[in-house]
Nucleic acid binder design. Structure first.
Length: 156
DNA sequence: GCCAACGTTGGC
DNA sequence: GCCAACGTTGGC
């Protein structure tokens, strides 16, 4: 089993949106970056655990845990001109973009903000805390995953 | 295949 | 709202 982190802007699609859905499950559509695409198409497996990260907000933070419940399949929103993430270059005969389904597992007991994550030497290798990081999906080492859960009960 | 221009991300 | 970092595009 592998561990991941996925970013989303809470104003657009936050953890509260995911929780409110039937089965607390949604497809993670709209990713238009090849590195992130490759991870969803090739690497993420049912049962993998995923941190839900709120980006572009105050404060950016890890807020909860999800689980992959469907492995990579074609992101059909790329074919629809009415969709925000329509990509005319993605041909249904040869799809360019993929997505996975994720299901809400639980909220963290507290949000763990980015500036706190940056303060731990244990997490200094995470791409999330490195400068200029723009990747919206990234793998997390098990030891980093475990460390983050271990600080969940700390005073902030 | 190089690289300048441009668009987007996302923290601050 | 600013801007640094980065990915993509397209002319050559």
């Amino acid at each position: 089993m592998a561990y991941w982190l996925m970013k989303s802007e809470p104003d657009v699609f936050g953890i509260e949106h995911l929780k409110a859905l039937p089965k607390k499950t949604d497809h993670w559509d709209g990713v238009r970056n090849y590195q992130a695409r490759n991870m969803m198409r090739d690497e993420m497996k049912v049962g993998d655990q995923v941190f839900f990260y709120h980006s572009n907000c105050k404060p950016p933070a890890i807020v909860g845990i999800m689980e992959v419940t469907k492995e990579g399949y074609v992101d059909h929103t790329a074919f629809d001109p009415d969709e925000k993430y329509y990509d005319p270059k993605s041909d249904p005969e040869k799809p360019r973009w993929y997505m996975v389904d994720v299901t809400h597992v639980r909220d963290l007991k507290r949000e763990i903000p980015l500036d706190e994550l940056k303060s731990y030497p244990e997490l200094s290798d995470m791409r999330l805390v490195q400068k200029g990081n723009r990747l919206s999906i990234m793998p997390i080492e098990k030891k980093e995953w475990d460390f983050i859960l271990s600080i969940e009960d700390d005073q902030s």
